[in-house]
Design a protein around this nucleic acid. Structure first.
Lengths: 189, 189
DNA sequence: GTCTATAACGCGATAGAC
DNA sequence: GTCTATCGCGTTATAGAC
């Protein structure tokens, strides 16, 4: 915890810069300047720019995977599971909104970990889809195109990082309830 | 039409590359190689890398502005207007899915046109919000948080570029109907 | 742990030959 | 309209002083 504090600080600063300009547009000099040191000094703590990106993205992607795994195991019905998934996204995003920008926009710049990341994402989407399909089978969810429902929910949840930071005073649990209600019940009166 | 063909071709190729790796990660050498010429030769047709980005983003942003302007003028009720907005997004995205990636992810790399782009986007969001607020007033739309409804719909519509190209056989009008139905009525049975 | 200095290379863009 | 050659600068990364 104490040993890593400098590296953690670098990753934290990088996460913020990556969110503003994207991974490719941020130089090691930008990062060093933001830290108040020289670019060369960064390499005493990290091995490459690429390692920073991996750290940010993989840890977040794994958080989603573990979170969904826990929800899958519960005995709740599909609608309740979907509500819990909304809360999962709201909570993870609120804890790391900058990192979510990299997860969404810079994953293609991963190198060593690209295949692993793609597998995590694919598995996540498949598990999400399974929850929806179960809801259709048990007559809780409309028998509409599963694809379209999955796309609509996931797009909204994945965009939270753009929107949540602007609402700093928002009560997270309350907001997640409102959001899941709109995703599930629509806006129609 | 004939005069511009080479420039158009460059922009088309760049749009595809920008979508895959992002504006900053694409070099003029990458673009030249994809065109089968040398980087220096690009400058006979375009004045800078920046100009390419502006062309892609501003033309799309203006398409959305004009489209929404036309919808605002109709006499339809709010729900019908929202359906038309869904169709607008589906149609523009289907015609230029690669360009939509730049619009969503690379707008911050605009220079001269950044302020203009931000104005277009802000106005668009405000007009969208007004349609929802009218629906609340006329009792067609739930009296929930307008913010959350706007965010949810707009996030989904702005993510279409990721999802639409994977469904090439999709009937666009039919898909837009399904999508707007789910956004408006939810997935709950 | 940070510094200076530097290596080795790639970047956007330009000049001028053909 | 495309080329070669080149400019000035930025890039990741390393070596060695303090």
């Amino acid at each position: 915890m104490k040993r890593d504090s400098r590296k953690t600080e670098i990753i934290k600063t990088a996460t913020k810069l990556f969110k503003e300009k994207g991974y490719s547009a941020v130089t090691m000099r930008d990062l060093a300047t933001a830290m108040g040191i020289k670019a060369a000094s960064l390499y005493n703590h990290i091995s490459s720019k690429q390692e920073i990106l991996s750290d940010i993205i993989i840890s977040l992607a794994e958080e989603f995977t573990y979170g969904l795994e826990a929800i899958k195991k519960t005995e709740e019905n599909s609608i309740e599971k979907l509500k819990k998934i909304c809360h999962l996204h709201v909570n993870i995003t609120a804890n790391n909104p900058y990192g979510m920008a990299s997860l969404n926009n810079d994953w293609m710049h991963l190198e060593d970990q690209l295949t692993y990341y793609k597998k995590l994402r694919k598995d996540y989407e498949e598990d999400f889809r399974t929850v929806i399909e179960e809801g259709v089978k048990t007559n809780l969810i409309k028998d509409a195109k599963t694809d379209v429902m999955l796309f609509s929910m996931l797009s909204t949840l994945r965009s939270l990082y753009i929107w949540l930071p602007k609402k700093e005073d928002v009560k997270l649990e309350l907001f997640a309830d409102e959001l899941s209600s709109i995703l599930i019940n629509g806006i129609n009166k």
